[in-house]
């Protein structure tokens, strides 16, 4: 196949699948006719024009006929996703609190020498993420409830020690997480299988989480910036996957955005306030590599097993 043929084929793939199936041959015929029955050599201008048309048609197919139900569905998904976010945040509190408690009990200072323990903060986040991805809501809920209870103990401890910022901030986050968990326990569950219309999902999910994430997880600025940037990049990748008609990849991408931010937040939270250290940069790099690895792994798992059954 010539380069022109390959380029044309690639551009035709931009068309929505159903439209491509019924119109690709016709479009190729029109191009051939236009060249007076000569061999197919679509000119660059034709290719650009076709690519533009393909994106327009794809956009219309997304947003035209069933736009209103999609908005409603997107809002529902966004609210549910937000609750998932809060529940995962609660799970983060569980382990950061356990680590804090251990440091208080044994007299460790987290800012000196025990930072290796911070890696443990990642475990409940990944666990909660995996549990929810596979529809194990009961276990995920238990994890989150445990996190909240532990966090209340931490909040009380901090308030009695006159550290009102962390204390009341933790209580506020516990309240939000508790509300989310209560709603989840009432049966309003997020299913990854429901994320078939991902643009709205990602959009609605990304913005509130970007605003609330730092509050919930004590995401300090120096750690937060690169992590939010990575999260933003993931949002773009997710949108790209949606446009390319790859919902599986998008789901895997989307579910990593918030846990990723929370990982950074949890790490920073365990590290205390206001530290700008080489370790944070190192952790950020580790986080980025881990995120990429998780993304690839999640996509592979989802492709192999399919999405969990959902609504």
């Amino acid at each position: 196949m010539s380069e022109h043929g390959r380029a044309l084929r690639a551009i035709l793939r931009l068309l929505p699948a159903d439209y491509r199936q019924s119109h690709a041959d016709e479009i190729v015929t029109t191009l051939r006719d236009a060249q007076e029955n000569g061999p197919l050599r679509a000119r660059p201008g034709d290719l650009a024009s076709l690519a533009s048309a393909a994106l327009k048609i794809r956009a219309r197919s997304h947003f035209d006929a069933d736009w209103r139900p999609e908005i409603e569905r997107g809002i529902v998904l966004g609210v549910r996703a937000f609750m998932l976010f809060l529940a995962v945040g609660a799970a983060a509190f569980l382990w950061t609190t356990v680590l804090r408690g251990a440091s208080i009990y044994w007299g460790y200072d987290y800012s000196d020498g025990t930072r290796i323990l911070f890696a443990a903060v990642l475990l409940p986040l990944i666990a909660a993420f995996v549990l929810q991805l596979y529809g194990r809501w009961r276990e995920a809920t238990v994890l989150a409830v445990g996190g909240n209870l532990a966090a209340i103990a931490l909040a009380v401890h901090k308030i009695t020690a006159n550290d009102f910022g962390v204390g009341f901030g933790t209580l506020a986050a516990v309240g939000m997480s508790g509300l989310a968990i209560a709603m989840m326990m009432a049966g309003d569950r997020l299913s990854a299988g429901a994320v078939r219309r991902p643009l709205l999902f990602v959009g609605i999910w990304a913005f509130p989480s970007a605003l609330v994430g730092p509050l919930v997880s004590d995401l300090a600025w120096q750690m937060g910036r690169p992590i939010v940037a990575v999260g933003g990049a993931l949002v773009l990748v997710a949108i790209g996957m949606a446009v390319a008609g790859r919902p599986h990849g998008l789901v895997a991408c989307a579910v990593l955005i918030l846990p990723g931010w929370l990982m950074g937040g949890g790490l920073q939270y365990a590290g205390g306030w206001g530290y700008v250290r080489v370790e944070f940069v190192l952790w950020t790099l580790i986080f980025m590599v881990a995120t990429a690895a998780l993304l690839i792994a999640a996509m592979a798992v989802v492709r192999r097993t399919g999405l969990p059954a959902g609504d």
Binding site: T30, A34, D46, A53
Partner: peptide
């Protein structure tokens, strides 16, 4: 058909408008 429309548009417009396939579809 597609190419027929492209040709007819060119005739109607006196040669001023030459549709590309993307615009047409």
């Amino acid at each position: 058909h597609g190419y027929g429309i492209m040709k007819e548009v060119e005739i109607i417009s006196g040669g001023n408008v030459k549709l590309r396939a993307g615009t047409l579809y």
